[in-house]
Every structure is written in C-alpha cells, then in structure tokens.
C-alpha cells in the first residue's frame, strides 16, 4: 500500500472527487489482493461451516409449523417471542448468569492468586504450575464422569469424608438447590489453571524497572500489587473475563453428562436449552431463535470487550 499510494496521488488531485474515491478504493483493493488471496482458504471454510450455518439458523428462526402435519410457514419474530415467553428459557438464562458469575469470579480470583504465588520460576513452582494446569488437559466429559463418582450420594468420595461431619448427606446432583453449585465447582476446578497461564504471561509484562522504583520508594507488597501489578494486568483481566464468559455459555459438556439440565431444570443452561428444543421438542424454529438470541448476546459482549481493549491500546 505504501508503494502504490504515491503513484495514485497525482492522478487523484486532477480527477473528480467521486472518481478519486473509487480509484483509491480500487488501488487499495489491488494492493491488498494478496492478503485476500491468503485469507481465501480460511474464508471458504468459515463461510461453509460458520457463516453458512449462521445464515441457516437465521432463516430457520423465522419459520414454524403450527401442528405436526402442517407445512412450515413464515412466522417472523414469533419464534423469538415464544422463546422469550418460555419459563424454561428465562430459567436457563438466570441459571446461566448465576453460573457465569459464580464460575468466572472464583476461577479468575484463584488463577490470579496462583499466578502471583508461582510467578517466579523454580523447580517447585514449575511442578505446582503443571499440577494446577493438569485439570485443563482432562477432557470435560472425562472430568464429569470422574466427578459423578465423587458426587455419588452416600457412597461417593465427597460424602465419604463429609459424611462424618454432617447428619444428613447432601445429594449433590439430585437436589435442585445444590446441583448448579456442584456443576460450578467442576468448572472452577477445570478453568482456574487455564486462566493462570494468562496471568502468568501478564505478570511477565509488568516492567521490572517500575517495580524496582516502587521498591526503592518504599512501597510495600500490597501497594505494589494495588498500584502497579493490577493496572498492568488490566488487558489480561479483560481478555480472561471474555474467555470465562464465553466458556460459561459454550461449555455445557458436564451438564450433558451429569444432570441433563435437571433435577427440575435447576442446571439447565442456555446451550442445553437449545439442544432440548432442537432434539427433545424437535422444534427447529424455537431452537434457532434461542441460538440467535444467544449469538447476539455473545457478539455484543465480544464487541464491547474488544472495543474496550482497542480503546486502551489506542490511547497514549
């Protein structure tokens, strides 16, 4: 682009303004053609498997059958309002919010704590890092299967130990008041180590000289943490929060394996609701509408966070 522009400029000054814009666009396109060509293979796959599917969802969300034998007909936004009016959906949204907040905050807090404790590399901290990272390597489905045994009422590992302390043993996955929290524990256990990696990387970026200067000025560990480390970690925080929120919406493997959304819908999350609509209710219209709503929420969230990040990086 930097090579092409000077050549285009003299022409542009003499031509009409509209033509000038077109030409400049043309030259720009010509200059970035190799870039587009390089992007083409992944664009093809994105179009086929991501945007194509999204388009299909968009169309499916507008159609519905009135009765089983009736043909599908265009219903506009009816599916979306049906989803919004469905108590199971609002319940799933509330569950998902509780789940998102209840998993993101503890796992990010733990991750930061781990990262701060293990930021200096030596044999012990490397071993501990590996140990804390281990849950990330276990597939969610395998982890859920493991936790099912831990949570087994009366005979599970957890009840075996806690049973000595409590008169009535909790039915971890069978009690609607507890089940969601049991599910959240697994997520925190699994994700804290992953987020720790980002914080470890973030901590590497904290400038050594600033820390030294603070040290010389007599700032204690808390002051250094509060006024130097935390502000420096802000982009990491933003990034991890986005990832954690996305995980809260897109990772429902343990719900599939352990509770199927139950008991009494107490662990039903939005993605599982969509699955239920599509598979159990065989209602493609409603499933698509719920997918659209979720997509919109996620895209809004991502756009917002990227903007915040861009603003920060664009600043002085």
């Amino acid at each position: 682009m930097s090579l092409a522009e000077p050549a285009a400029l003299p022409v542009a000054t003499s031509a009409a303004p509209r033509l000038d814009v077109l030409k400049r666009l043309g030259t720009r396109f010509k200059a970035s053609l190799p870039a587009y060509l390089l992007l083409l293979p992944s664009l093809v796959f994105l179009a086929l498997f991501t945007y194509g599917a999204m388009g299909r969802v968009f169309i499916d969300a507008l159609y519905q059958r009135a009765t089983p034998k009736a043909p599908v007909r265009f219903v506009g936004l009816d599916n979306i309002s049906a989803v919004l009016a469905d108590p199971a959906f609002t319940g799933a949204v509330v569950n998902n919010l509780v789940y998102a907040i209840g998993t993101a905050i503890p796992s990010i807090g733990l991750a930061l704590l781990f990262a701060l404790a293990l930021s200096r590399t030596n044999a012990v901290s490397s071993a501990l890092r590996a140990a804390l990272f281990l849950p990330v390597l276990i597939p969610m489905v395998a982890a859920s299967a493991l936790f099912m045994f831990i949570f087994l009422p009366n005979v599970g590992l957890l009840d075996f130990y806690i049973g000595r302390l409590l008169p009535v043993l909790p039915n971890w996955l069978g009690d609607p008041d507890i089940a969601l929290y049991a599910i959240m524990i697994i997520t925190i256990w699994k994700n804290a180590g992953y987020y720790m990696l980002f914080f470890l990387a973030g901590l590497q970026a904290v400038p050594e000289d600033v820390m030294e200067a603070a040290h010389l000025d007599g700032a204690g560990p808390y002051m250094r943490f509060r006024h130097i480390i935390l502000p420096e970690l802000k982009p990491t925080f933003l990034f991890v929060i986005v990832i954690a929120t996305l995980n809260a919406v897109t990772q429902v493997d343990h719900v599939f394996v352990m509770t199927q959304g139950g008991p009494s819908n107490s662990t039903n999350l939005v993605l599982f609701y969509i699955y239920q609509q599509a598979v159990e209710h065989y209602d493609v219209g409603k499933a698509s509408a719920a997918t659209l709503l979720t997509l919109a929420a996620l895209m809004g969230l991502t756009a917002l966070s990227f903007r915040t990040m861009a603003n920060r990086e664009g600043g002085p």
Binding site: P153, V155, G174
Partner: peptide, 8 residues
C-alpha cells in the same frame, strides 16, 4: 431424599 440417577 433427592433424585438419584440409575448408576448411583
């Protein structure tokens, strides 16, 4: 008390 799945 509670709902107990088959494997449990």
């Amino acid at each position: 008390p509670g709902a107990t799945p088959g494997p449990a």
